[in-house]
Design a binder for these strands. Sequence first.
DNA 1: CTCCCGATAT
DNA 2: ATATCAGGAG
Length: 215
Amino acid sequence: MRITKKIKDEMIRRLEILYHDTKSALNFNNPFELLVAVILSAQCTDVRVNITTQRLFKKAPTPHDIVNIGITDLELEIKDCGLFRNKAKNIFSTCKILCDKYNGQVPSDYNELLALPGVGRKTANVVSSIAFNRPAIAVDTHVFRVSNRLKLAIGKTPDEVEKKLQKAIPREKWSNAHHWLIWHGRKICKARQPLCEECSLKDLCPSFMERQSQD
DNA sequence: CTCCCGATAT
DNA sequence: ATATCAGGAG
């Protein structure tokens, strides 16, 4: 069944009320720290990333420092986050580029962000919107799952869901809505056992309706 | 599509 | 035991 524009607006309205004061769960003090944290966050909890970055930035706070400690030590530093060989290689290469091309700074241009190794659309959107205040909806695992369950934006890929979310949500709310959807996914609309009974959107949610009518 | 991958929740 | 965790590259 199709979800009307009116219902989607009501979903957004309720999410905004519920999660209006939420922000990034990743700890960072500047765009560079955010960039590294987001690269590390792939297939890893934010709690684990925050423990790792705190330790890492104490030893190597700048791109230059990370290039100096080298890939092998970097691998050991970030091992707990998983996918550590890929992440270490990407963070190292990205830091080298930041030093060589950008004077040790993170570029604010979207396409330049996207061109960095280990930076895909999701990471570029997060850095772009949080660090540089550009409207963007980063579609991570939570945003993807919640959007599909609510049928707020249906898609087989994150890119597809991103495009549909951009149509469903006014541009000035994009960056905030990204956080509303994440927090809803973390607290209520969880991957394994969603807390549908506690969900303030259950009367609007097609997935909950379907689940109801089964038993 | 597959591979990368340790920590954690269920 | 196994699904999942703020994905991206080949």
